Amino acid sequence: MTAVVRALGRNRRATAGAVLLALLFALAFAGPAVSPWGWEDTDFTAFRRPPSADHWFGTTQSGRDVFALTLRGMQKSLVIGLLVAVLSTGLAALVGMVSGFVGGWTDRMLMWGVDLLLVLPAFLVVAVLSPLLRDGRPLVLVAVLSAFLWMVTARVVRAMTISLKEREYVLAARFTGASTPRVLARHILPHLASLLAVDASLNVSVAVIAESGLSYFGFGVRPPDTSLGTVIADGGSAATAYPWLAGFAAGLLVLIVLAVNLLGDGLRDALDPTSGRAR
Rank of each mutant, 00 (worst) to 15 (best):
P223Q: 02
A233H: 12
A92K: 01
G218W: 10
R134I: 12
V260M: 08
L27V: 14
L91T: 14
L117M: 14
L133D: 03
P121T: 01
S77W: 10
V4Y: 00
A259E: 06
D265Y: 05
R13Q: 15
T180G: 01
T45P: 02
F123M: 15
T70S: 14
L195T: 02
R155Y: 03
G177H: 05
R48E: 08
T45W: 00
L252Y: 03
V208G: 10
W244G: 05
F101I: 00
V102D: 06
F219N: 04
V34L: 15
P51E: 07
A250W: 00
W105T: 15
L255F: 11
L110G: 05
V4N: 01
V140C: 01
A241N: 09
G103T: 07
S215Y: 11
T42H: 13
G264L: 01
R6F: 03
V66Y: 04
S205Q: 14
M74N: 03
A200Y: 02
A16S: 13
T89K: 03
A233W: 03
Y216C: 03
S130G: 07
P223I: 05
R72P: 07
I256H: 06
L23C: 15
L117W: 05
Y242G: 01
L129K: 04
L141W: 12
P181W: 06
F57G: 12
L132V: 11
S163G: 14
A92S: 14
P32W: 12
I162W: 04
N261R: 05
N203R: 15
L267D: 02
H187L: 03
